[in-house]
């Protein structure tokens, strides 16, 4: 009885705090606990992304990377370049090898794989319907067990048609695609496409907490997933900007190209 009341108190407290934070930016919520910096990608060296950390995914994948995405991913500097302390992934409207758009996608597969920690990136999102940038992770064992058994942690996904919202998601066996465990976060003021925001997870054994700036908005534990918990293992990172596809829908005549996703840094803490 006492325990139930305690947990009730706790959940009510968290809910109230989130409400409170939504209106008053100066009140702080305990969002992060891991503060020892163990990896940082500051995108300080101009040119192509650091080849010791990043691989390019090229082309259209299978069925538009599984989502009917309309872009062709390239490694050309027009689509991806490090410049002025930023990684810029730029989506363009152009005919390119049978696709109507180009963009870029990089992964740290086989080069940087991490189990647990606080993983965050500071990103300014692009403007316009049909754009679908993301900072996300896949289980490093994807080649052995395939998706969704390997698991997927979407630290941030963003749809250009909704410039004040973003979402964080986990996919795994029995809970993937439309059945994934996902939550939206909507800004009370400001937008994601005209300023930088910090998107991150704090991840440990049997939990993943999702945050934006100073707001914790999503917590996933094994009891939240209707299947096997596949997140107690190493994951690699992915940065990309898709154009069109099942989730965002196609760009329309209001979507101005080119559009750039700006990544200031990725930092990992323990």
């Amino acid at each position: 009885m006492k325990i139930i009341n305690k947990s009730l108190f706790k959940s009510v407290f968290i809910l109230s705090t989130v409400l409170f934070l939504g209106c008053s930016e100066d009140e702080k919520q305990t969002v992060i606990t891991k503060t020892r910096l163990v990896m940082q990608e500051e995108f300080d060296v101009n040119g192509a992304p650091n080849p010791e950390l990043w691989n390019f995914d090229i082309g259209t994948g299978n069925n538009g990377w599984g989502n009917n995405e309309q872009q062709f991913y390239t490694d050309r500097p027009e689509n991806i370049i490090v410049e002025g302390g930023m990684l810029k992934i730029t989506a363009r409207r152009e005919l390119y090898l049978g696709s109507s758009f180009t963009s870029a996608r990089i992964t740290s597969k086989g080069k940087y794989e991490k189990k647990y920690g606080r993983i965050e990136a500071r990103i300014k999102m692009p403007l316009g319907r049909g754009l679908w940038p993301a900072f996300w992770m896949l289980g490093a064992n994807i080649d052995e067990v395939s998706w969704p058994q390997c698991g997927e942690i979407d630290i941030v996904e963003y749809l250009g048609s909704n410039p004040i919202s973003m979402f964080g998601t986990v996919h795994g066996p029995g809970y993937f695609g439309g059945e994934s465990i996902s939550k939206n976060y909507t800004l009370k003021t400001g937008r994601f496409d005209n300023e930088f925001h910090v998107y991150g997870i704090e991840w440990g054994e049997n939990y993943i907490n999702f945050y934006v700036d100073d707001a914790l908005y999503h917590r996933v534990t094994p009891s939240d997933v209707p299947g096997e918990w596949v997140f107690n293992q190493p994951y690699f990172m992915i940065l990309n900007m898709a154009v069109g596809g099942n989730l965002p829908g196609s760009p329309n005549d209001q979507t101005a190209f080119p559009q750039t996703m700006w990544v200031d840094y990725i930092r990992v803490y323990e």
Binding site: V12, L19, F20, S24
Partner: peptide, 9 residues
């Protein structure tokens, strides 16, 4: 507490 928070919000 909840009422107070909501009120302040």
């Amino acid at each position: 507490f909840l009422f107070g928070l909501v009120f302040m919000t």
